[in-house]
């Protein structure tokens, strides 16, 4: 038993996170990537600490409508007299929440379809890939609008709808990687050892496509956040929640641009752009490290 324990401990502390550490070491040298990552971390902290940062309750009227920026309200107030700064801070929560959850859902569907399709091939592959193609060629925004009109504007529906249009690209990516993994001899060796298909899928294929999936997740998050803002801006967002998209929708509707407080439209816009940019920086950096053609130095 002591031997077993010794092995466990070596595994646990010795080298478990070696690959991740190595990845971080290279990543740290990428300035753009670090900038993006810091921005994302700041956004996440803001989202988590929103109630402590905001000076006012974002759902309360705290002043006159359309006040220009002043010492009490640094970005002024909206059409109902709510504090723009507090609204924007709370908006971070919804944007991140929708973005991350929709992405996880789409990554889950995409990976499952991609792995099964690539591994089993034949009729299963044909069927799944035609379905994937179908979703891939549907024009995203119009489809989103139709779906959210049918399903109704609540935050869970928005997440589902975004996931539905985002999964096909992940599925394609994962399938092609699975196809190449499938021909490696260690898969055949596993079959010889008596492994079932399910075992091979999880223990051999999935662990090897996981880095690819995580890289694609970063890109999908950006898309999901922008899509959520787009939907909300079109008035299809969840009206009971504050997101940057709904803020822009109301700002537009009440003519904020030409009112006494144009910051109503500028501030959520900037918040959205910076977050989107941050994710793009991170995905570029990861791509540079992971993509063998762009790799400046070998990771392994």
């Amino acid at each position: 038993m002591t031997k077993e324990i010794r092995l466990r401990q070596k595994r646990k502390y010795g080298e478990r996170f070696r690959e991740i550490k190595e990845f971080l070491r290279v990543y740290r040298k990428n300035r753009l990537g670090m900038l993006g990552l810091s921005l994302i971390i700041i956004y996440v902290i803001i989202a988590l600490l929103a109630p402590y940062i905001t000076p006012y309750d974002p759902f309360e009227r705290v002043a006159d409508p359309f006040l220009p920026p002043n010492p009490e309200h640094i970005f002024g107030t909206d059409e109902l007299g709510r504090d723009i700064f507090s609204l924007t801070i709370y908006g971070t929560r919804i944007s991140l929440f929708v973005g991350i959850l929709a992405t996880l859902l789409s990554a889950f569907i995409g990976s499952a379809v991609g792995i099964v399709s690539g591994y089993f091939g034949g009729l299963v592959d044909d069927l799944l890939m035609r379905i994937t193609d179908l979703f891939l060629i549907i024009p995203g925004i119009p489809f989103l609008i139709v779906l959210s009109v049918i399903l109704g504007s609540n935050i869970w529906n928005i997440i589902t709808v975004i996931a539905i249009i985002s999964w096909p690209s992940t599925a394609r990516l994962v399938r092609s990687e699975t196809l190449s993994l499938k021909t490696r001899t260690f898969i055949e060796a596993a079959k010889l050892a008596g492994a079932t298909d399910t075992y091979i899928l999880f223990r051999h294929i999935l662990v090897n496509v996981l880095p690819l999936i995580s890289a694609s997740i970063i890109l999908t998050i950006t898309r999901a956040i922008i899509l959520e803002a787009g939907l909300s801006f079109l008035g299809l967002g969840d009206p009971t929640k504050i997101s940057w998209g709904t803020m822009l929708y109301f700002a537009d509707r009440y003519g904020a641009m030409f009112s006494t407080n144009p910051y109503y439209i500028i501030i959520p816009g900037i918040a959205l752009s910076i977050l989107g940019l941050a994710f793009v920086f991170v995905s570029y950096a990861i791509d540079e490290i992971v993509n063998p053609r762009l790799k400046t130095r070998r990771l392994r």
């Binding site: 060796a189 662990v207 392994r300």
Partner: peptide, 8 residues
């Protein structure tokens, strides 16, 4: 080729 790179 015959060993899974992600297994110990």
């Amino acid at each position: 080729e015959s060993l899974n790179p992600r297994q110990r």
